[in-house]
Computed example of a mutant assay.
Amino acid sequence: MTNNVQRVFITGASSGLGAALARQYAEQGAILGLVARRGEVLHELADSLPGAASHRIYPLDVNDHAALVLAAADFIQYAQGIDIVIANAGISRGTLTEHAEDLQVFEQVFATNVMATVATFSPFITTMQVQAAAGDTNCRLVGIGSVAGIRGLPGAGAYSASKSAVISYCESLRVELKKSGVKVVTIAPGYIDTPMTQVNDYAMPFLMPVERFAEVAVATIASGCSYRVIPWQMGVVAKVLRTLPNWLYDLLFANAPRKSRKP
């Protein structure tokens, strides 16, 4: 492996944002470590990418933290280091707290969206710190938040809360690692055209093609920007939402469209 080849590890890589990011990085000549539960789909993706023979795939569930540790160790050894880790794996479910059975859904969403993000980053940090101490300025940990994490959305308590937690966690980690030279990048997607959003039966403002999202995200990661909402129009919306007083926010969003809850 040459020092100028990016080494990129992506979870949730079999479809949606993860697959688009994998394609974008592969086109740039990166060596990829790709994680997803669906092994057959992951194989098909890896085989379709430029430089297919150089990529490693890890069919595993990100909630299996021990398996993530083994995958991280294998990829670091194979690629002789690590440049970018993208904790992209995530799930979205409609939830209502009055339904007792939704407690399990909350647990699943938090496990996949929050705890798996921590478990994805953890086994790479020491290696990144060593590389940064040796002068490597390209180490990036990338957390995928969401505009839904800016304010709590009705019917999406689990998803909104989990993505808010990802945003806050990445901010804490960013400050913790600042002196080490390892950068933490938080990306908050708005509505991106993926299987996750294609099931929504309501209008989605500023819907962005997933390949365009990947282009912008990869450029953002390369710049080391600490936080970015994509697309930019949703960034403006997010800033406005942050400033709304509770009474006005409640009035505007009490009847907002909701993701369907599946009993």
Rank of each mutant, 00 (worst) to 15 (best):
Met1His: 12
Val5Ala: 12
Val5Trp: 05
Phe9Tyr: 11
Phe9His: 10
Ile10His: 01
Gly12Asn: 13
Gly12Asp: 14
Ser14Trp: 03
Gly16His: 09
Leu21Tyr: 01
Ala22Trp: 08
Ala30Leu: 02
Leu34His: 11
Arg38Thr: 09
Gly39Asp: 01
Gly39Leu: 08
Val41Glu: 14
Leu42Trp: 06
His43Pro: 00
His43Ala: 00
Glu44Ser: 10
Glu44Thr: 14
Leu45Glu: 14
Ala46Val: 08
Ala46Gln: 15
Gly51Phe: 14
Ile57Cys: 06
Tyr58Trp: 05
Pro59His: 08
Asn63Gln: 04
Ala67Thr: 07
Ala67Lys: 14
Ala67Phe: 03
Leu70Lys: 13
Asp74Ser: 12
Phe75Ser: 07
Gln77Asn: 15
Ala79Val: 08
Gln80His: 08
Ile84Phe: 11
Ala89Lys: 08
Ala89His: 07
Ala89Trp: 10
Ala100Phe: 09
Gln104Ala: 14
Val105Gly: 00
Val105Gln: 00
Val109Asp: 14
Val109Ile: 10
Val109Gln: 08
Phe110Gly: 09
Met115Ile: 05
Ala116Val: 04
Thr117Tyr: 01
Val118Asn: 02
Gly135Asn: 12
Asp136Trp: 00
Val142Trp: 10
Ile144Trp: 07
Ser146Gln: 01
Ile150His: 09
Ala158Met: 07
Lys163Val: 02
Lys163Thr: 01
Ala165Thr: 10
Val166Trp: 02
Ser168Thr: 04
Tyr169Ser: 02
Ser172Met: 09
Lys178Cys: 00
Gly181Lys: 01
Val184Cys: 13
Thr186Asp: 10
Pro189Ala: 06
Gly190Trp: 02
Pro195Glu: 02
Gln198Tyr: 00
Val199Met: 13
Asn200His: 13
Asn200Tyr: 14
Tyr202Phe: 15
Met204Ile: 07
Met208Asn: 03
Ala219Asn: 12
Ser223Arg: 15
Gly224Lys: 10
Cys225Ser: 13
Ile230Gly: 03
Gln233Glu: 14
Lys239Trp: 06
Asn246His: 07
Leu248Ile: 08
Ala254Asn: 05
Ala256Asn: 02
